[in-house]
Design a protein around this nucleic acid. Structure first.
Lengths: 241, 241
DNA sequence: CGTATTTGTCTATTGTTCTATACAAACGAA
DNA sequence: TTCGTTTGTATAGAACAATAGACAAATACG
């Protein structure tokens, strides 16, 4: 717990409590120890600890009831599978009641260097860009930017808007099956745009997955960068033969 | 860029600059714009921006020279492959000159719930715990905690200390080959212990990989939690058939 | 009911962060 | 050298974070 580090004590404590809850070392019985106990354990004033709790209440992690105590609201992370057959919807369907994908924006534009490389197209070739937001149980879970070859998939954005699914939209172009070729996983602080879309507060972490999907012949058909809310998602990589 | 969010402005800006550098949108030519330009772009006072730069200089990301400008010191991330044949050493060997693994501590102890499940042992069965730190080019890269069945691998810690390698230590017990069965990837703020071991400052992010390795028969032989410095590492998942 | 426990609110004080302004020091180029 | 550009240092005031102490309000339990 460090002073003058650029991160307020209450936020450092909030991060620790959130993590301890998901690790099961705190609030395993559904209830947090009293504020006095916690503030002594962390070596800070009760008010500082209360700021941390207030932030977690705001996030929906905790619920405080006057006279009774502070309770854990939600514990389990969504586990998002990554394999050759990775599909967003199928992976999460079993873990959550209500899942939605919203199309925020779309455009046709020249491919940048990274996108062109990922899709195996010449630089500046026209590509369709999709900006999507996924929610589970009325909370934002991920924010993705996808690119598709505009010549092979004209009007892809409309197909996606109508079907609400990457898989179904591909079927309109005769692609019955596709595979995840590679995924690069990194993590960083959410930028201003993601902070707003994913309804996060400053300092929040996103897991970034940069993926290339290919058709049955191995030709790249989708290049995507997905930012997952790190507090609510983990990626599950199964590498069984 | 949000005020009273619990994260100091200079740290938010430092995070953004670091990210922009690794994305190539800033300092692509090796040099940063002048402080006045950047402070206006971020909408803050020049001093606030200077604090951000000072932090990045401390981290080794930037180098400031009076009268000349501020320069980018290092850009590329290490890419750590995750596949059925994942080996720590082989994956990174080609990307860095100097790689080392240090054994920080070891102990024999009863398996906790998670460890017992991962290794397929009864709860409280004796296990060997290894605490290791990996460095590349004299900078900490990852911090791992590994568990092994103490009955099947008695004295594993010593075997590891002598060989300096998980793979070589396994060979002493007749295991010529092993496979990565599953990997759970998540991200969180580094806790106090990792902050110290990995020489990070408050608010830093670690990529957490929880992995199970199995022998040729599919029996779990290692359960490990590795914390990677998110600023210096990305995980590369290849899921080709 | 009365008491202990627990969260919620208020005020005051101190230290850290951010802003504003000014000037010094090093460098590059005319 | 001289000038413009850029990083480094200093000082003072405003906004925010953390500590301290006291008390109110709701709940649980004998």
């Amino acid at each position: 717990m460090k002073r003058k580090s650029g991160v307020a004590l209450w936020r450092q404590i909030a991060d620790q409590i959130r993590q301890a809850i998901s690790a099961g070392t705190l609030g395993a019985d559904g209830k947090l120890p009293p504020e006095m106990v916690l503030s002594e354990r962390f070596g800070v004033n009760r008010h500082t600890l209360r700021s941390a709790i207030a932030a977690l209440v705001q996030e929906g992690v905790l619920r405080a009831e006057q006279g009774r105590g502070t309770f854990v609201e939600s514990r389990q992370k969504l586990s998002y599978p990554i394999s050759a057959r990775t599909r967003f919807s199928t992976g999460l369907r079993s873990q959550t009641r209500d899942r939605r994908s919203n199309l925020l924006a779309h455009a046709v534009e020249p491919a940048g260097k990274r996108v062109a490389e990922g899709l195996g197209l010449p630089e500046d070739a026209p590509v369709v860009r999709l900006e999507t937001l996924s929610e589970a149980d009325d909370r934002p879970v991920s924010r993705a930017t996808s690119w598709f070859d505009a010549e092979r998939f004209p009007g892809y954005a409309e197909a996606y808007a109508e079907t609400g699914s990457i898989t179904l939209a591909f079927q309109r172009y005769g692609i019955e099956d596709y595979f995840r070729k590679s995924t690069l996983v990194s993590a960083r602080h959410a930028d201003a745009a993601d902070l707003a879309d994913l309804k996060l507060s400053a300092g929040a972490i996103v897991l970034v997955a940069v993926a290339v999907n290919v058709d049955a012949e191995g030709v790249p058909i989708q290049y995507a960068e997905t930012r997952f809310v790190a507090d609510r998602v983990e990626l599950s990589v199964s590498t069984e033969a």
